[in-house]
Nucleic acid binder design. Structure first.
Lengths: 232, 232
DNA sequence: AATCAATGTAACAGTTTTGTAAAATGACGC
DNA sequence: GCGTCATTTTACAAAACTGTTACATTGATT
């Protein structure tokens, strides 16, 4: 039970998920508020100065989408960052497209590590918006909040998938990821995606990165997969 | 399907928990096997060389307790560390007291961080820590997660077979392996492979290593086989 | 030194894996 | 609906890897 930390509101109907999330956030020093329905969540929002909201997409009564709308409609709460938790297969693209006003979303099953990173990013964006979340390796750097990538000081424009792909690689530079692992992380295992698709996207990513620099940042490990590695 | 990492078997009936655990372990580089019932779990244990087991206390049919007993009764599996996952209120004290043979237990809701720490600890306690990801001998080192090999600070590029071969040698530096032993370990005895093939691959490995350093790391023991040894 | 068996290795052919362009698909905004 | 864009699949080319063979070299033994 932390005393101060930022206040996080979790709205999630499945108790075990709620517990787990709450516990993990608590361990990190956050001040956790729990709600099992949208109504409860909105009530808590009225009473407490919440700093960030984790909102399950699927909720028993009002859908997460609806709850999000309500939060964003209310002047007092509209500036609170909302991270939507969506289950695999609930078509993340639609989520992105929809005008929910959500600030971020994350697809289940997510790694707690990633979730925590997003929460931090969300909090940063709120107060001052100055803080940056930057991943980098050698001369390559990725600004998560700006969604921008730089190689040797050249800006590189990446499509959404390429961006995600690079992000995964960048989260553990040097580590070799099998095609299956990449499918799982980048494509959230949306079944029916060929493993070879990974190759094509790796190829594109490579081309984009190399266009700006010369050295090859992506290493192919024959028979295993790929890694971000200036192996030389 | 992860490639390297230690193999973790999770036995947990609640799908969302199973997914979450599995995903988080996978992200950390473990090779995850999933089972929703004790039976399934035991089956997997028969087929696969599991390194550590996460076992839910509450299971639909056979209770986790019973499954644990069975694991510990079986000579082949008794040495595999078992971490029990118990829900709060299921009287942890009793768990501790009971002679389940479990090596560790953790109470829900747990922080993933803590769980991962316990898993690492469990693996360490096993056989001297099979969870090592760097093998080395003298100035030669092999990073398993990176799939990279270094000799005197030079990177060496090895093909999949050469890599495996070196790995076997590196797991017991100095020990002499006969060609048959190497065939067994590296080629998994895929029938119809000539003995002489080993020589060829040893030769290739040698060439690659020597290209980067000068000293010969591989010793030929005439009439017996090869070993990793900077003898002369 | 001559012999013989064991080992080293280059070269080849066959296979597998990866790179990539281009066509098919699908989503979205107009 | 239609064009545009991003993604996925497909198909083929290129590259890397493998196992075998043949021949060269080595080392032990006589």
């Amino acid at each position: 039970m932390s005393i101060d930390g930022p206040k996080v509101l979790i709205v999630e109907d499945e108790p075990s998920q709620l517990e787990l999330l709450s516990y993990n956030l608590d361990v990190e020093g956050y001040n956790v508020f729990k709600a099992e329905t949208g109504e409860q969540g909105l009530l808590i929002l009225e009473e407490t100065e919440i700093d960030i909201i984790l909102l399950d997409w699927m909720l028993p009564q009002a859908s997460g989408l609806e709850v999000c709308r309500q939060i964003k409609r209310n002047k007092a709460t509209k500036s609170i960052p909302v991270i939507m938790l969506t289950a695999r297969g609930e078509e993340e693209d639609k989520v992105r497209g929809l005008d929910t006003g959500a600030d971020d979303y994350i697809v289940k099953p997510y790694s707690i590590k990633e979730l925590l990173a997003r929460v931090r990013a969300g909090l940063r964006s709120r107060d001052g918006g100055k803080g940056v979340d930057v991943l980098s390796y050698e001369n390559l750097s990725m600004d998560l909040t700006r969604h921008g990538v730089t190689v040797e000081d050249h800006n590189v424009h990446l499509g959404p998938l390429e961006f995600k792909l690079l992000r995964v690689l960048l989260e553990a530079p040097g580590r070799v990821f099998s095609r299956d692992q990449l499918l799982e992380r980048v494509w959230a295992n949306s079944l029916e995606v060929e493993t070879r698709t990974v190759d094509v996207h790796i190829g594109r990513l490579r081309k984009q990165l190399n266009a700006a620099c010369n050295d090859d940042y992506i290493r192919t490990v024959r028979g295993f997969g790929y890694s971000l590695d200036k192996f030389a």
